[in-house]
């Protein structure tokens, strides 16, 4: 009830639409993966999902940000039930991120992940970290859903505290085929990344490769 009302409010503020037709409900576990440019990103995916799917989903987020301050902690732990991953390498060794995410999947949750690993400074799509590949190979039954987030980098860009009320958009794509047995990691990640760029229809640019 509380979550439903908040999701409605978020949709109202960000202009994102609830579109149940976009997300099939066949009961399979799924990982939503999206481009990342704003703190609002997982919040709007969460808000755009139909009730049943929203109850199942757990965003994967940075522990350092979401555990600072009581409000953020309450939002992340209680409301969004986030899987919090520490950024600090020492802590990361103590509880490996892939295992945390795997536990959540096995417990019956869906996940929201951002394979770029961090928010894009420019609004362009950066390169993908290998986590998505490992998740997909370790959990072969999981459905990978590409998600394109439009305009969120303009509503709340990195480094700003206040959002401006522009209209954002969440587009869910067709599921991505799981990595084939002999598919190299880089090829799979390229394919996953291309799925998001294809959803964007030219409105999302690719970050130029590092020399």
């Amino acid at each position: 009830m509380k979550a439903g009302a908040l999701a409605f409010l978020i949709r109202l503020v960000t202009g994102v639409r609830l579109d149940p037709r976009q997300v099939p409900s066949d009961g399979g576990r799924r990982i939503y993966y999206a481009n990342h440019a704003s703190h609002l990103d997982f919040v709007v995916i969460w808000a755009a999902l139909p009730d049943a799917a929203r109850r199942r989903v757990r965003p994967v987020a940075a522990a350092e940000y979401w555990e600072s301050g009581p409000l953020r902690r309450w939002l992340a732990r209680r409301l969004f039930q986030a899987v919090l991953i520490p950024r600090d390498p020492a802590k990361m060794r103590a509880c490996p991120p892939l295992e945390r995410m795997g536990e959540a999947l096995e417990a019956g949750s869906d996940l929201i992940v951002f394979p770029e690993g961090t928010r894009s400074e420019t609004g362009r799509l950066g390169s993908f970290k290998p986590g998505l590949f490992h998740l997909a190979t370790r959990h072969p039954g999981v459905i990978l859903v590409p998600v394109y987030l439009e305009n969120l980098n303009r509503i709340l860009p990195k480094g700003e505290a206040m959002p401006v009320p522009l209209m954002g958009n969440v587009l869910f794509g067709y599921p991505l085929a799981a990595p084939a047995d002999d598919e190299p990691k880089a090829a799979f990640l390229d394919r996953a990344r291309a799925a998001i760029l294809a959803l964007a229809h030219g409105t999302l640019e690719s970050e130029p490769e590092d020399p």
């Binding site: 202009g15 305009n151 303009r154 860009p157 700003e160 206040m162 401006v164 009320p165 522009l166 209209m167």
Partner: peptide, 26 residues
């Protein structure tokens, strides 16, 4: 006016440098 301006600005590409200006406007 708020909704109309929101549609107008959403369709006009505004870069990062306009974020604060937009906050003042809205």
């Amino acid at each position: 006016s708020f909704l109309a301006l929101r549609e107008f600005v959403t369709l006009s590409p505004t870069p990062r440098g306009d974020h604060r200006t937009l906050m003042w406007v809205f």
